[in-house]
Each structure stands twice: as C-alpha cells, then as structure tokens.
Design a protein around this nucleic acid. Structure first.
Length: 486
DNA sequence: TGTGCCGGGTG
DNA sequence: CACCCGGCACA
C-alpha cells in the first residue's frame, strides 16, 4: 500500500509548461500536485518528464531511477498506446493519482493534476498500474518504442491491417509488439503519456507560458491526443478537439468547462453538495468563523454521488461497495477507493447555515458559482451566505417582527416579512420553515411558539373586565384579539 | 403579576 | 363551529 501510493503520487506529479493561470483553475477544483517545470511522473517503470511543454517518456525500472543516464524521448515519439475499448471507459473513469493524504503533495507549487481527478487513473488491460508494480520484477530499463500517431488529424498512416475502429479508443500497436511483460510496461508508459496529455496545460498551453514550447511538435501530438479523446467511446465524457478546454476531472465525468468547478457543472441535482463543494474547493470568499469549527470530511467524487462521510474508512467502504461493486463485507482494499474521494474541510458552523439557505428551491443553487457583488456597508457585516440567499434579498437583514393573520382577526391584510429570529411562522411559508428548522437549533416545536405580543391595547384593556360583553369574541375566548390588531 | 393568546376540550 | 379554559410567555 505504501509503495503503491508512493508510485501513484509520483505519477500524478506532472506538469507541463508554466501555465500559472491554468494551474490556478485546477487549484480551485482540488488539490494539486507537481513541482515546477521539470516534473517526473513515474509508475510501473514509466518515467514521464515534462520539459518546456514536451512530455518525455521513458520506461525504466522504478527502482533504477538513479541508475545512469536515462534515454529520453520527445513527445512526438510517444509509443504504442493500446486501450482496448472495453477498458477505455474504465480507464477514463479512473483518475491517475494518488490516494494521498499527504498535504505536501497536495499543495505542490504549480501543480496541475489534482488528486481528485479520477480520469487519470490508469488501468491497462484490466490491471492497474500499481498492480503491475506489485507483480512484476523491476529490473529492466526500456525505452518506449516509437510509433506514429495514426489519428487522421495527425496525418498519420496507420497500417491498414490494423482493424481498430475509428478513433479514440484505440491507438494501434505495432505488430511486432512484444506480447507480454515489457510490452505491458510500454503500454503503460504510452498510456501515461496520453493521460498526461489531457492536462489543460498540455492541450492548451497558455500563451503566457514560458514561450519556449516548440509549437510544431507540441501541436502535433496535441492534436492527436485531443482527437483521440474527443471521440472517446466512454460516453460519459468527452470534449471536442476544437474545444481546448479540458475536463478538469475525469470520472466522475465532468463538464469540459475547466474554468468552473466540476462540481458546479455536473451536479445540478445535488445543489447542497454542490454549494458545499464550491465553498470548499474554491477560494473561499467566506471568512471562516473559527478554526476549531473545521472538520475534515471525506467527499465521494463519483458522479452524481458526492457522498460526504466523516471517516476515510467510511468513504472507502462507500466507494468500494456502491461504486466499485465490491463486496462490502470484505475489508480488502487495494486503495483504489482512495482515488474517488477527497478530503474537504468543513466548517461546521457555516455548513449548517449554508445547508439551510440552499434549499432545493433556492434560486442561488441553480446558477453559476457565486459571484459576490459589491455589498453595502450595512450588509457587509452580514455573513456572506446571507448576501445571496433568497432571504437576504426579500427581507431586511435586521430582524423584524412578524404579524400573522389569525382566524379571529378577520380580513386584515399585511405585508409580512419573515425573519430568522422570528419564532412563529405561518404554515404556508414552507420553504422558510425548512430553513428555520434546520437553521436554528433553538427553534422550538410547533407548540410553544408564540407571536410577539402586540403593542395595541386589547379589548380587556379598553373595556375592562366590567364590560366584557363589549369584547370581541376572540378576546372573550382568550384568542387573539380581532378588534384591535397590531 | 397582568395580559395576550395558543392549544385543547366540550357540546 | 362556538365556546370555554388551562397554561404559557411576555411586558
């Protein structure tokens, strides 16, 4: 397990170019990793090195990283990539990453691939890379064999005898490919390279990047790779080659709008979670109240799930049983679950408030990520979540009393306002009541909630006990006065 | 403590 | 429903 994670985190730590802007986007979406310009990704003896926007692929023994010079192959020498269609979806649904709970990994400077990117998980021939690492001796240093990109957009000329269907799911493998063993490593290497190419920085190197990127070569493999992915048969996600934006995360399949959080774009039916995620993953505009109110939670990243559990074991079990279809009774874990959840810091205080405000009917939950408008001085002191909440828009931020109609009060109409601090709520204000019940722990049950006493004199005061017959019926019945309403 | 009135009981 | 009242919360 330890070794696996070590390898995984190495694998994910790849960065191409400087791309600070893109990296910033990714940072929003999750934890990042990577360490600067030249980053090496290694797994299963595959070394990927990114220099000036070119992915250098190497296959070697992980154990021999320090052994002598390594042969490097420019990106246009990417080797054979064989993604059986039956596996590709799986591959796409996996994220290449590490399980990690290592904060240092998570926050590496300029990182690109975030650990919450299940897409980058590499599974080849039904076997994960780390599995290979466990089963194969690492004693061979091999170079990645060269092959031409066969995709049409690359102008490649794949051998006619290769019957691979269309594009995307397969990249033809030379027939002289070695049937096993090292070949698998080569495949892995190629796949790693391919997977890494899905990085936004690779597909869309920012113009502000170092500028040292050799444009022709990078464009070539960019086109190949993006075209390959654009026609992915996974069906869950894809992006057009013309669309240079990239799914920031994989499976859970995501929007191709990398500028937005994957959570924002893909979880329309789970707004609460969405908002939470937004809150946690984006740069938090909401000042946290107290540090000691923070709690680490574990959020499932599976599409349309996003279950949040308080323990890593719990979330692993959830993923294992619910998403991976494994035996829930078995405690066996190869760590794959690690790739499908991420840690989030939950501010327990704001969480409850946020959940309260983000009811399914809340208009704020259906829109884009919150853009906090300039607020007035008076509202600036309010909690941030109030700014966009429906309540804050329809009601003054200050508490105001509610005057409710009563059956005894007759056809008296009021323009009523609802306030958080109010105890009593008309039954018709269901959405408001929801907010209150979840927002205020001190809210009492329906019994005992009273409206504030009115200022006006009532029949008793006006007429006195002596003239009780002059009282309104409500007063006589000890009900809310009909005659002298507030 | 007086007042307002909610909730519930009775017919 | 109409009527009544116990009991609570608030001023």
């Amino acid at each position: 397990m330890t070794s696996k994670r070590l390898l995984d985190k190495t694998l994910v730590g790849t960065r191409v170019g400087t791309a600070s802007g893109q990296a910033g986007n990714m940072k929003h979406a999750g934890n990042t990793t990577g360490h600067g310009e030249n980053v090496t990704a290694m797994d299963c003896g595959v070394i990927l090195e990114c220099k000036n926007g070119i992915i250098m692929g190497k296959v070697l023994n992980a154990k021999h990283l320090d052994d002598g010079p390594l042969r490097e192959h420019p990106s246009n020498d990417l080797s054979e990539i064989d993604l059986p269609s039956g596996r590709e979806k799986h591959c796409n649904s996996k994220k290449m990453g590490y399980s990690g709970h290592d904060e240092e990994r998570d926050t590496g400077p300029g990182g690109v691939l975030k650990r919450s990117s299940p897409t980058h998980r590499l599974i080849l021939n039904g076997q994960r890379l780390e599995d290979q690492m466990h089963t194969e001796p690492r004693t061979v240093v091999r170079r990645v064999e060269e092959t031409r990109c066969w995709l049409p957009s690359c102008g490649a000329d794949p051998s006619p005898e290769e019957k691979y269907p269309h594009v995307s799911s397969h990249i033809p493998v030379p027939r002289n490919r070695k049937p096993s063993g090292h070949a698998d490593k080569e495949v892995m290497a190629a796949t790693v390279l391919t997977t890494l190419s899905t990085s936004p920085l690779v597909l869309n190197p920012p113009s502000a990047a170092s500028g040292a990127v050799p444009e022709p070569s990078s464009r070539g493999w960019k086109e190949c790779l993006s075209a390959s992915y654009s026609s992915s048969t996974s069906g869950n996600w894809s992006w057009d080659a013309s669309d240079q934006s990239v799914p920031s995360t994989p499976s859970p399949p995501l929007s191709n709008d990398a500028s937005k959080s994957f959570l924002l774009s893909s979880q329309g039916d789970d707004n609460i979670e969405e908002a939470e995620s937004t809150h946690f993953l984006f740069e938090d505009p909401i000042p946290r109240k107290r540090k000691n109110s923070m709690k680490v939670m574990f959020k499932c990243l599976w599409k349309n799930c996003e279950k949040v559990l308080s323990t890593s074991s719990g979330i692993q079990r959830h993923i294992r049983t619910v998403h991976l279809g494994r035996n829930g009774d078995s405690d066996y874990s190869d760590g794959e679950e690690d790739f499908y959840y991420s840690e989030i810091e939950v501010n327990m205080d704001t969480l409850s408030e946020g959940l309260s405000n983000l009811t399914p009917t809340s208009p704020t939950t259906a829109g884009p990520p919150p853009v906090f408008p300039p607020v007035s001085d008076s509202s600036r002191s309010e909690p941030s979540h109030m700014i966009n909440s429906p309540l804050s828009q329809s009601a003054p931020s200050t508490l105001c009393h509610i005057r409710t109609d009563h059956a005894y009060q007759g056809p008296v109409t009021h323009i009523r306002t609802v306030s958080i601090g109010e105890k009593r709520q008309p039954v018709s204000h269901t959405s408001v009541n929801k907010i209150h019940t979840s927002n205020s722990l001190t809210t009492k049950p329906s019994t005992g909630a009273r409206k504030p006493r009115g200022e006006a004199k009532k029949c008793r005061k006006v007429y006195g006990m002596e003239k009780k017959d002059l009282w309104c019926t409500a007063c006589r019945w000890k009900k809310a006065c009909q005659r002298f309403t507030d």
